[in-house]
Design a protein around this nucleic acid. Structure first.
Lengths: 246, 246
DNA sequence: TGCGGTTCTCAGAAAAATCACAGACTCCGG
DNA sequence: CCGGAGTCTGTGATTTTTCTGAGAACCGCA
């Protein structure tokens, strides 16, 4: 089931109307904090665990709809945590967190079953997007919810990565796409450059806030070109997107 | 009976509408995990067993519509498991997992009865495809479900392995076929190179994402040659297939 | 109107992703 | 044993994307 929040954002809900529950498993406190905050922002219920033992326990009584699992835990390796997790919750989809270089051998194959993974360092938008995909596909949330974001005559398909305005197809690069996705998931809401940087770029990105301005200008050139502008600057506050005729 | 999942994929269902049940028997945890995940993704109900004893027990009360059976188990050899399995479930089709070199004599006879086998290491697409075939032929699921994938004017028959575009027959190698099958089972959806690698290549394939690019280029040469392209690159995201006129 | 801070845009360097091609290796049938 | 088909690796060329730095433009306010 989907519902629309006062902010105009569409949330995933379980069939009974209660919020989706996500369990976050990572031994670095800074990571669980970061993720918990970002995922709560989605309107989801979050619980976190710092090691495999706690994860299994939480799985049992929290009964999450999805799990975020770091593959490098102190007490037991990710695969055995996964095994015991599956015994508790056979159907639950898992999003793996893994180091960039460790991908090949250990993770290969894990994503095949419809699970997914992201490499550290990740961007929060990435994590949220993939989790949404997993939850949507798992059927925990209403299957009718589809993967298309719409704001005014602007359309973004998260599956095919296609974007169009007023029917006209628009090509975006990967970063542009993620930025627009973030804006469109928060229509009519001012997003600060810091927020955008945190969400769209990796959490360890060392660069300047200048990139945000730059990519906003790229987007404008492609989205607003000639038309009524949808992307607006709020001086000293940030940016927002909203339907052109408002 | 067939139904269409949110991904637009056609699922096998039993006559009473409940999902198909598959029992996975293997002593390596990583293999049962891998298979369980992949098969759940197909919308099937999975139970797994780590040895022959557990397999027999599960067969009795889970009553699967198909069994995946590793021929090398610790406590008893595959043949005796098979024998006792047949006593419980005379009709159930079995997919044997076997080492590459052990195939010849022993398996050859077994598959005569309508069963099938794949050699380790296998690719998940292969296992899923063969299981679908077994289940379909066994009559556990509705026979009307057919085995032809269609995207635009492109057609792929999972049974005969025939591929054609705009009526013209196209010869594909085994790997090309599996890659195209995976793409066509997920039309209009971006598939990352990692996803493709996980699904189409063997689970222990250690190679580079380079092969995916290579095989995409092979496919393009055969599928898209001269025509409106159906295979598209989403730089930084992956590849997708969709009807040419869109 | 002039000022200070903010935002926008440009241009180019650096990095990354993709594609193309050639060669090695294996398997299989004659 | 040979030859062909199929697979995969490695290497470069090519294209695209990302990011930095600097100056121009803009805005709100005194």
């Amino acid at each position: 089931m989907t519902t629309t929040s006062p902010q105009g954002r569409t949330e995933l809900l379980r069939p009974d109307g209660s919020p989706v529950r996500v369990l976050v498993v990572d031994d670095e406190l800074s990571i669980t904090e970061l993720l918990s905050m970002a995922l709560r922002y989605e309107g989801w219920q979050i619980r976190s665990a710092g090691d495999g033992q706690a994860a299994i326990r939480s799985a049992r009584d929290f009964r999450p709809d999805a799990v975020v699992l770091d593959m490098m835990l102190p007490d037991m390796d990710g695969l055995s945590v996964l095994g015991r997790l599956r015994r508790e919750l056979p159907e639950v989809p898992v999003l793996f967190l893994t180091a960039k270089d460790a991908v090949e051998d250990r993770i290969a194959g894990l994503t095949a079953g419809g699970d997914d993974y992201v490499t550290k360092p990740f961007s929060l938008e990435e994590v949220v997007a993939r989790l949404r995909g997993l939850i949507r596909r798992s059927g925990a949330a209403d299957r009718r919810s589809d993967s298309v974001l719409v704001v005014g005559d602007l359309t973004l398909d998260e599956d095919s990565h296609e974007v169009s305005r007023a029917g006209e197809n628009i090509h975006l690069t990967a970063t542009e796409f993620e930025l627009l996705r973030f804006l469109m998931r928060n229509p009519r809401r001012v997003l600060s450059k810091a927020q955008i940087l945190d969400r769209v770029w990796s959490y360890d990105f060392g660069g300047q806030a200048n990139v945000v301005e730059l990519y906003i200008s790229y987007l404008r050139r492609k989205i607003d070109a000639g038309r009524e502008p949808m992307i607006h600057t709020r001086r000293g506050a940030g940016y927002l997107i909203k339907p052109a005729v408002s």
